[in-house]
Nucleic acid binder design. Structure first.
Lengths: 161, 161
DNA sequence: TATTGTTATACTCTATAACTATA
DNA sequence: TATAGTTATAGAGTATAACAATA
């Protein structure tokens, strides 16, 4: 497991050898480490893709869920996004200010807001979605179609404990 | 792509229907979304595993790299961890205060620090490593051995653009 | 009494500029 | 002049408590 089994293990403050190449072989065996690195890469690339649309990962996901689930409440959306309700409020404030979504009172429960995408919001959704699909094809370009499906299936197995 | 193709698409503020189940089918098609969810699960489980050792993900990774690369400089370690040098300083401060690592001046370049794990650091490394291996077996319990290797290989393909 | 959305706040992570001591 | 480590700081992202309106 150690990097240099041939080095003397004196544990004394003798001459400290310079390290020419840093080995991460122990960490490389872990799926968590490899997933973090791969996800960091995807996240950075996706951020660049969404920037021209003035969207971040979380605002894009929010817009997608609202388009796909018109009339949804904020508490339902927060659950789906796995974020806390207070943090969703500022996200929706921004999307509403940009006229991408609307917050309408639910007649049957005046505490709740029914979320809907505006026409402008659906237009932005469609444009951004095309770019995100291109981004996905790009980051998975080196993998075969069967491997892509296998990887996604594996991810879902992991989270479904 | 829409959740309810049978709903009337009036786009008017008519009676807002309650949403019974939130659909994320659009996002489910993306590897980035699935990877984020899977990684969140792994991260939460790993945090619980490391907590009894008073370690976080980043302090564990730091300790592993120092054990595997004795004599390494802080700048090399920051590169390997993909974090900025200033953020590494406080991490090393903590590990040094707990007597898990040492920072020794490099005789040939008195600007640099040679990093080494102490005996106590190596002991903690070995104990934590066993728990992390158990954690990995647990989160990948539902996958076959061939799928585990395939997923890790796919991760490395993604980040190696 | 419980829930929805909200405000305020705090804590972690991460990123950048500027300093010191060495090269 | 450039580099290694450091300090201070600011910005994201995330989490919790408490409030008003409503159920």
């Amino acid at each position: 497991m150690r990097a240099n089994p041939e080095k003397p293990d004196t544990t004394k403050h003798d001459t400290t050898p310079e390290v020419s190449h840093v080995s991460d072989e122990t960490l490389r065996g872990f799926i968590g480490y490899n997933m973090k690195r791969a996800f960091n890469f995807i996240q950075a690339d996706l951020a660049q893709v969404l920037k021209p649309h003035d969207l971040r990962m979380v605002t894009f996901s929010t817009l997608v869920l609202i388009v796909d689930n018109p009339g949804m409440r904020q508490s339902q959306l927060a659950d789906a996004l796995a974020i806390e309700r207070p943090n969703l409020v500022v996200i929706l404030d921004e999307l509403e200010r940009r006229d991408l979504i609307s917050r309408d009172r639910v007649p049957t429960d005046r505490r709740a807001h029914a979320l809907k995408a505006t026409f402008k919001g659906r237009r932005l959704f469609e444009k951004a979605l095309r770019d995100v699909k291109d981004h996905e094809d790009r980051v998975m370009a080196k993998m075969g179609l069967d491997d892509r499906a296998r990887v996604i299936a594996a991810m879902r197995l992991i989270e479904a404990e």
